[in-house]
Amino acid sequence: MTLMTPFRPAPDLVRLRPAGTRHGAARGLRRAIGPVLLLALWQLASMTGVLPAEVLAAPSTVVGSAAGLIGTGELQAAIAVSLQRVLAGLAIGGGIGVLLAVTAGLTRLGEDLVDAPMQMLRTVPNVALIPLLIIWLGIGEAPKIALIALATAFPLYINVYAGIRGVDQTLVEAARTLGMGRAALVRHVILPGALPNALVGFRYALGVAWLALVFGEQINATAGIGYLMATAREFFQTDVIVVCLVVYALLGLAVDFIVRLLERSLLAWRPSFTGT
């Protein structure tokens, strides 16, 4: 007896295509289409009078004002002042956030003492503290930096803490069988394991730092991007306001880029999904 494969109807075959090489430049170009289209639409609306200058200045006017502000050095000076505020706030707030997260993450005593108050304070909107900050710290640089510090401390705290507590228990066990002491365990296993989360927190903190800066610079500023905006408001200079908004956006973008670079080098070890 011969055994034959029984006849079956032909299945529909689909051709699977290899991914091919997608050029980075082409992809970058594709990503630029959206914003460029938006800008063109805006320019068109301004030129046809649909969008009057007192509502929103045309992109061409904005570019001109930006060139003017750069020419006089006003913009650079404002950026320098604002950047200093963000860095100072981030250093103080981030430092405190990370320190508290490590305390709460590593020890149960720390968790009991630190975590509950932090979770409670986290829900208070930072901006609502501005009146108190003014009463405590006056209207100089201190309340602005304090606001940024407050805003950045929480995202870092939450993510670093979650990162520490999320470290793979099997790796901690493996480390113990290798005879690692507590300090070595923290240094070689727990902190590197918490790093992906910590960087997420850092990125988020940078985002809210700019937000806090915008609010902070409404407090009687005499320099900085917020000050530039406040004076522009007095004179209905929508072009200058837009320049300031663009600067905020560009600074945010630049910082995000730096964090991406940081992630790429610090998290090179991570096998992760990179999108399709």
Partner: peptide
């Protein structure tokens, strides 16, 4: 100890 999973630290 060597475990069923290698348990290498992925960041080293």
């Amino acid at each position: 100890v060597a475990f069923q999973a290698p348990r290498l630290m992925p960041w080293k």
